[in-house]
Every structure is written in structure tokens, then in C-alpha cells.
Design a protein around this nucleic acid. Structure first.
Lengths: 248, 248
DNA sequence: CAGGAATCTGCATGAAACTGCATTTTTATA
DNA sequence: TATAAAAATGCAGTTTCATGCAGATTCCTG
């Protein structure tokens, strides 16, 4: 088993269960606890997990339930503002979770009449605050840290929906690597969304542009629209523009 | 159970109930009171709680965040306390929404390993705070006021699940009229739950005993267990007891 | 102010982590 | 393709950490 593979697995486990035990992982993949510890240390150094005595925890533990201030909120608001312009009355819109998507959910104009389909519970709450929005929740097993539903049922259900538009909260995007993420289950969900939606819009703060994670969601060509807080003509976005992606 | 995990749980409990007892926590998670004290001391040092003789208090005075008050919270807590005794490791439990159910969700002991299936988004959030609870969300159209999913999909999915136990938050109960409610869609969901669960427990504050609404959920005979804040032998509950319902 | 409960202190123990080193695997390059 | 360099891994010995327990002390309550 490759190191990266192992770490991806650990990350997956952490994102799924919020917690991993060194002893458990060691046994599970047949390597020494030392190796696991080194993996955990590395993941912690990259800020992807929180390392504690005995194993590792999801970062969401450290950030706590309180003091939930969103990172780069202004940028995300700006992105949401641009994204909202893509939605029109009568549309069926698919969305993932993520803080950027939540911003979008908050600023939907009250007179908008559309149907939002989501796997994200927090997003569903926000959509529900809008009088004229229909909200469809996709059900399945709940991933505890991200509060999104994941699994085969969810994916099958997403595939059944021919949405007009899909908003993806993006973890990492790169011209070569395409759209990538670090949680196996989330990737499955996003893949399903990309494949079923007529148009795909990626919401991404500029900081994450030209970065990559381990797990691939889709190719850069599968994205129709890229929304960042930058000016559309910004140099950083040129490579995407020349791939035929519409920049907002 | 990891140290951080334990502390996160304590913090959650403090923020929820504004108070925790060392003795209670010790028993709940099966560690010595010394350990709890050390945890409380550490959390206090970090300024997250206020440590006092016998346990800990929320310092929300400083933060300014006050928990929303629920009608008849004490009664509901008592009901939840009784209900929790019915749940055992490995069980599949179906629940509706409602504030009584939310209380139940909050006091689940951390070591409990069970699967909770729900249509209620707020309940799903609460369940997700418990480290060893699996949460399955039933998806469908979201009813905005009650924040539960309703519709044919949801009902079909509920029917697919052979749950060991079902907790119904009860709106009105009466020996003749049976269990009744006033929201058509909620009734559909409850009906499906009653028909599929092996055991049905109704959670009901005494105030609603011997009242009726317009829409029928099920007959009184379909209920296996009735939980109120009253003593099981209370006069008000005799008619139910004599119908063969177990009173807690 | 008396009695019981909660707390603190120091210590013992087992588990986990770190350190340095030897061995294996991967990668780069001649 | 051969081979050196670099990286990854496991192991043994030592150190640190988490936790429970016993006994002394302090804190509440009636």
C-alpha cells in the first residue's frame, strides 16, 4: 500500500468518523503504529487533521461548534453574489455543501422561485428560509463533520435528477489535475452531480486556484463556469479561460 | 474514547444545558471523576467553561449566546430521560422531529452505539454530535416550518426500514381518538413509521394527554409504550394502561 | 460546626510517542 | 539497466502522557 494511498485512506476515515485510532489503523492496513504516527503527523502538518494522543481527529473538533466564523468570508460573499445571477425562476439547482455555498444560500433573492436539491443539511436549512424556494433533501448516511449525506443511495438519487445547474464548492482546482478533493465520499457525490447537471459552476476562492488534492472529481473541461472573487480577466484565470471555461 | 473527544462532548453538554455535574459525566462516559475534573480544569484554563465545585458551568454570559428556550423544557427532559433507557447498543431507531425528540437526541449517552434514522433535520444535527451514533437521513421535499422531509419518497424509504424502535413526538393522544396531529404531511410520515417499527414509543407531555387533533395517525392500540413526565401510576394514564400500553 | 461530598496531591501503571538506527523500497541518473 | 541517493518503514529502548487510586484536605449544607 502506497504512502499517499494510506494517507488518503486515513483522511477518508477521519472525515467519515471524526476520529481515528493509531492502533486501529495500524491493524487495519498492516503497518506499524510508527508509520501511522508519521502519517498522522504529516497530515497534521498540512493542516488536514488534528493529531492527538492516541490517534487523530477532524479539524472541526478544534474549530469547535462555537465561534464559527468563516474563513475568507468577504471573498465568499463576493463569489456568492456573482453566482446568484446564474439562477432563474423555475430552475432545478443541485448544490454540495461548504461555506461558500452557504453564503450563496443566504443571499438568494426572496422573489426567486426555484428548486434546490442538496445533500448538505446546513444548506437545506438556509434554503428553507426562502419563501419561494422548494428544497429537496437527498437522504443517506450522514457524514458527521461535513453534515452532508453520502453513500450509494444518495448518489443514485442524484443521478435521477436532471438539474439545470449545479454549484460545486471547490476544494482545489488546477488546469492539469482538474477538480480535486480529499474526501472519498464527497468526491463520489460531486462526481454524480457533475455527470447529471446540464451546467456545472465551480465556486472557488482564488487561494485554491492552481492547487490540487489527492482525489479527482472531474476534468477541467467538465466545468462550464468558474467563479472566483477575482476579476474575470485576472491573469491567474487565463489558463482556465483559454480552456473554454466561462469566468465570472 | 480520546481525551479531546471527551472534552468536546463536555463542552457540548455545557453549552446545551448550561451546567454539568462531574458525577454525571463520569458515569456517562465511564471514566473516573478525577479524569472529568482534570478535563474540566483544562477547559476552564482555556476559558471555555467555568469550573465550579461539583461540575462546570457555561460562561455564556461573556459570550452572549443564550440557549433558545423550549416550552415545558423540564417535562420534556424528564420524558427524554425515561425514553433513553429503551435504547440499546446495535438498535435501529426511527424518530420524528419535535422538541421532545430533540431533548432525547441531546441526552443520548456517548457510549451508545446505535443507528438513528430520521426525517428531521434538527434531530439529525443533534444525533451527529454523538461520536458513536450512525445517522441516516431520509430524503425528500423539505417541509419548511417543521424542517422534516415529507413525501412519497420519504415514506417509501421509511417502509424499507425494519426499525427496532420508533419514537413519536406526539401532538395529541386520546383513548378514543388515538394518536392525532394537525399537519397532513407529518401524519403520513408518522403512519409509515408506526407501520414499520417493531415497537412504537409515544413521547407526550401530560398536557396533551386526552386531547385530539383533526388528523389521525394511528389507533391507541398501535402504541406499545407511552412516556410522559408523570408517574406511571398516575390516574390520568390509567385508561392507557388498561389498554395494554406500557407506561413509563 | 459536624458530616459527607468533592477536590487535591502524589504515585503507580500501562499505553502511546519519540529517538536513533538498520533494513527495505523507490527514485533518479549515469 | 545498473547503481547511488533518497525516502519510507520497522524495531528497540527511552521518555512522556493519560488515567485511576489512596489518602489528606477543603468545601458545602443543614
Amino acid at each position: 500500500m502506497l504512502k499517499k494511498e494510506r494517507q488518503a485512506y486515513i483522511l477518508h476515515q477521519v472525515n467519515l468518523h471524526n476520529k481515528v485510532l493509531s492502533s486501529h489503523l495500524s491493524e487495519q492496513m498492516g503497518v506499524s503504529e510508527d508509520t501511522i504516527r508519521r502519517d498522522l503527523a504529516e497530515l497534521a502538518r498540512e493542516g488536514k487533521i488534528l493529531k492527538v494522543h492516541g490517534g487523530g481527529l477532524s479539524n472541526s473538533f478544534h474549530q469547535g461548534v462555537i465561534a464559527q466564523d468563516v474563513y475568507a468570508i468577504e471573498e465568499k460573499r463576493m463569489i456568492a453574489q456573482k453566482a446568484v445571477g446564474l439562477i432563474h425562476d423555475g430552475m432545478f439547482v443541485l448544490t454540495t455543501g461548504g461555506t461558500t455555498i452557504l453564503q450563496l444560500a443566504r443571499i438568494l433573492p426572496p422573489e426567486l422561485r426555484a428548486t434546490f436539491i442538496t445533500v448538505s443539511l446546513p444548506a437545506a436549512f438556509e434554503y428553507a428560509n426562502h419563501p419561494n424556494i422548494e428544497v429537496i433533501v437527498i437522504g443517506d448516511k450522514l457524514a458527521k463533520n461535513s453534515k452532508i449525506t453520502v453513500g450509494g443511495e444518495a448518489i443514485a438519487k442524484i443521478r435521477d435528477i436532471r438539474a439545470d445547474l449545479c454549484f460545486l464548492g471547490v476544494n482545489a482546482i488546477d488546469v492539469q489535475a482538474g477538480l480535486t478533493d480529499n474526501d472519498w465520499e464527497v468526491v463520489q457525490v460531486k462526481k454524480a452531480m457533475v455527470s447529471t447537471a446540464k451546467k456545472v459552476a465551480a465556486l472557488c476562492i482564488s487561494e485554491k486556484v492552481n492547487t490540487a488534492e489527492h482525489l479527482k472529481v472531474c476534468n477541467i473541461e467538465d466545468i462550464d463556469i468558474l467563479i472566483t472573487e477575482l476579476q474575470p480577466k485576472s491573469k491567474k484565470l487565463q489558463p482556465y479561460s483559454s480552456k473554454g471555461i466561462k469566468i465570472l
